[in-house]
Simulated scan of single mutants.
Amino acid sequence: MNVATPDVRVGDERQKDLEAAAAELNRRPRKTLGWDTPAERFAGLLMNDPNTRVATIC
């Protein structure tokens, strides 16, 4: 799937469609990730990296 890069302008509706497609793909479990979703795996990487600082809401 091609995703618009920041220097490519697309209409607001098209951008919403692209964001929805990306979100759907990131919520889809992958066999190659041990049935984790890409979003879960990315979150795990952030939580396990001592050099990463992520804002949290308490």
Rank of each mutant, 00 (worst) to 15 (best):
Gly11Asp: 07
Ala23Leu: 12
Arg28Phe: 11
Pro29Gln: 02
Asp17His: 08
Val54Ile: 04
Asp49His: 03
Leu18Gly: 00
Glu40Met: 03
Pro50Glu: 00
Lys31Val: 07
Pro6Glu: 15
Leu33His: 03
Glu40Arg: 01
Cys58Ala: 13
Thr5Glu: 12
Asp12Tyr: 03
Gly44Ile: 02
Cys58Glu: 15
Thr52Phe: 04
Asn48Met: 04
Arg14Pro: 11
Ala39Ser: 11
Leu46Thr: 15
Arg41Asn: 10
Arg9Met: 09
Gln15Met: 09
Val10Tyr: 04
Glu19Phe: 04
Ala22Glu: 09
Val8Trp: 10
Ile57Leu: 11
Met1Cys: 06
Glu24Cys: 10
Arg30Pro: 14
Cys58Trp: 12
Met47Val: 06
Arg27Met: 05
Met1Lys: 11
Asp7His: 02
Thr52Ser: 11
Thr32Gln: 04
Lys31Thr: 06
Pro50Leu: 01
Asp49Phe: 01
Trp35Tyr: 10
Arg14Lys: 06
Met1Pro: 05
Pro38His: 03
Ile57Gly: 08
Ala22Ile: 05
Leu45Thr: 11
Asn51Ser: 06
Glu19Thr: 03
Val3Cys: 07
Val3Gly: 06
Ala4Glu: 05
Arg14Glu: 11
Leu33Arg: 00
Ala21Asp: 08
Asp36Gly: 07
Leu33Ala: 02
Leu46Gln: 06
Lys31Glu: 11
Gly34Val: 00
Lys16Thr: 10
Arg27Pro: 07
Leu33Tyr: 01
Phe42His: 15
Val54Arg: 07
Lys31Arg: 05
Asp7Ile: 10
Arg41Gly: 13
Gly34Ser: 01
Asn51Phe: 02
Asp7Ala: 09
Asp36Ser: 14
Lys16Asn: 13
Ile57His: 10
Thr56Ala: 08
